[in-house]
Structures are given as structure tokens and as C-alpha cells.
Amino acid sequence: MSPAETALAASPAAAAAAAPNAEGLARDGRAERLALLGLASPALLLVLVILVVPVAWLFYVSFIGADGSFSLENYERMINRKSYARIFYTTFEISFLTTGICILIGYPLAYFLSQLPPRVANLCLITVLLPFWTSLLVRTYAWLVLLQKSGLVNEWGISAGLWEEPLKLVHNTTGTLIGMVHIMLPFLVLPVYSAMRAIDRRYLMAAANLGAGPVRAFWTVFAPLSLPGLFAGSLIVFVLCLGFFVTPAVLGGGKVIMVSMKIASNIELFVNWGAASALGVVLLVTTLVILWVAARFVALERLAGGGH
């Protein structure tokens, strides 16, 4: 640096001339960020109080043994006892089956709805959403009434000559699945439907123009484009199923024991908060892992551009 330049840089007047108002603008920027933080703070506080603190507490309690000291016994019990493995297996099995059946019923239903004129489709969507307006418990007990030995379903089936003996439709896996699919279906149909509605009709026109008949166009263009919606819907259903309580408890008749029910019995019967918390932690962590893997999977698919 020449002496003249040093002199220039050292002069505050020269610096101000080169970058006018820089200091004032920087101060305004800081003030703005602070104001934003101030606006966000009630929400942050709420999240902290109702989410972060309870989850941290859950973690803490899960490491407290029966004698009140720090121990890993709650987790050890889960690994050592066969019954726990069985419960986790049942939970995943029911969740997988429910999700699968929901896809089989919900995807065609969403497709059908998406092809209707928007007004009619909206009316039909209301009927899909109608179950949300009645209580979960009421709906579950309604199924109990319908599916029991002398219930409507069995009566109709026998009088129509479809089967002879009353079928065992409730207090088992079948009943649980029927109830859970009924309750979960809207969670699948809604995202799939909106993904399908968002598919530009012109893609299908382009496919037809390039030589694809309706069936080819569906499988090569429509189905792949609806996949993100199907994926989102399936994920929601699966995760909701993992923690589901009421329906398996009522319709499973004690034969279908899922993690949530074990948590309840640990508290109600054994008043063992540590064991219940440990189950909750494992369920939470599993769910997070599934979500993480799923997010990875979707990102990879996007990177590959799909199609091949």
C-alpha cells in the first residue's frame, strides 16, 4: 500500500464516502432480526412447553428404574422378554397391513374422485370426510355392533347364503384391520386425491399424442406423477397406525396387543412409568427412523429423475 492509499483508508470521511450509510443499514438489519425473533417467541415458547419439555421428561423417566435410581432395566426388560418382541411385531404387522389395504382401496377411490368434475368430486370428498365428524370411539363401537356374531354383517351374509356359520369378524386381527382401515382411509385418500388433481391434463394429452393408449398413459405418466401423494398418504397412515390405541383395544378383544396398549397397561396395572416411558421412547425413535429413511428414499428418487 502506498502512503497515499493508507492515508485514504485511514480517513473516516473517505470510508463513509465509499460505502454510504453502511453502519446505519447494518443496525437496521439487526433490529429487524430481533423484531422477528420477538414475534416468533410465543410460538417457540409453546413448542418448548408442550413438545420439547415433555419429550425430554419422557426420555428421563425411561432411564429411572423401579427403585428410583438411574438404570437401563426398562430397556433390558424389552430385550429380554419374548412378549415385547411379539408386541412390536404385531404393531408393525397391523400397521403394514392397514397401510396396504388403505392403498388398495384408497388409490382407486382417489383416482375415481379426481376424474369427476370438481363440484361432484367435492361433494364426494365430504362423504369421505364425514367419519371425522363422529367420535372415534363411537365409530369403533359401531363396528363392534356390526361385526359381532349376531351382528348385521353376519346376519346379511348368512341370509344371502354367502356363508353358513357366523364368521368371527371381531375380537381378532380381522376386526382390528376393518376398523383401522375405515378410520385411516381419509388420511390416505386426501393427499393422493390432491396429488392427482394437481397433475396437469396436458401431460396425459402429450402421452396420447405420442401414441399411448389410455392404459399405457395411466401407467407411464399418471401413476408415476401421483406417486409422491401416495407416498405421503401411506407414511401418514403408517405412522398414525404405529401409535394407535382405541380401535385395536376395542376390536382386537385383547388378542391384538400393540405398543400403545402395553404402555397403557404398564401404567394402569403396574403403575410403572419407567417401563411405559421406555416403550414410548422406542416407538418415537422407530417412527423417526422410518420418517428419515422415507425422506431419504424420496430425495433419491427425485435425484434419479424417476422414470427408469
Partner: peptide, 16 residues
């Protein structure tokens, strides 16, 4: 069997 260029191109976003 005719080629067509659509106004918004209608290129399939899920294919390269």
C-alpha cells in the same frame, strides 16, 4: 401419429 409441441411444452417431469 402426429407430432405436437404444446404451448407449455408438457414435458414429463418424472423423466429425463
Amino acid at each position: 401419429d402426429l407430432g405436437m409441441v404444446f404451448q407449455n411444452y408438457a414435458l414429463f417431469p418424472h423423466m429425463t
